[in-house]
């Protein structure tokens, strides 16, 4: 459901049009296009005016800190920069809900720090859902946490609470565990 309307049956591009931005685990970008072209394509999907889209490119590049690399082919960026670029493309399409699948996968410590800042700033204007198993990153985000196990919600709450939840510990360590009733 998004804004009271079911979206389960919609096609991927229709969901995107309704305001869901998604970043895949492995960076999915246009490797042979330049950084600014990548962002432009994301912005143009929502604006359908080339001028407006070009203005959006400037803002987004500044936000993700890739202004210097605007003209480089996206494939030449470092892995971390590619992750940011993809987040930037999500931002450029000004979504209401942002889904991030392991945004810090393969990042260095320093890059992870910058990503934390970036995700936090995204959360000011949109609902951000992050899937991540890097607990340090999750802790730094300081957001409500939901633990899923075999497709079901296992626990919800602050990370500090989750850390002391016996069931979560059992599942995490692979101890025998069955959700009540199943």
């Amino acid at each position: 459901m998004l804004e009271g309307r079911p979206i389960t049956r919609l096609l991927p591009h229709q969901r995107a049009q309704r305001g869901i931005g998604i970043k895949l685990q492995v960076p999915s970008i246009y490797r042979d296009l330049s950084v600014q072209e990548n962002v432009w394509l994301a912005a143009f999907a929502k604006m359908s005016s080339t001028r407006q889209a070009e203005a959006a490119v400037d803002r987004v590049l500044a936000r993700i800190g890739l202004v210097e690399r605007a003209g480089s082919p996206a494939g030449e960026l470092s892995h971390g920069e590619q992750q940011w670029l993809e987040i930037g493309m999500v931002v450029a399409s000004s979504p209401e809900v942002i889904l991030l699948d392991e945004p810090t996968a393969g990042m260095t410590h320093e890059e992870t720090n910058r990503t934390v800042e970036l995700v936090r700033s995204l959360a000011k204007t949109a609902t951000v859902v992050v899937v991540e198993h890097d607990m340090e990153f999750v802790q730094r985000l300081d957001a409500p946490v939901t633990v899923l196990h075999e497709g079901r919600i296992l626990a919800q709450g602050r990370l500090s609470e989750i850390r002391h939840d016996q069931r979560v510990l059992d599942v995490y360590l692979g101890r025998t565990f069955r959700v009540a009733g199943s």
Partner: peptide, 11 residues
């Protein structure tokens, strides 16, 4: 260049 990404952007 990348059909999946284009679709996910909303095209």
């Amino acid at each position: 260049e990348n059909e999946l990404r284009t679709e996910l952007l909303g095209y």
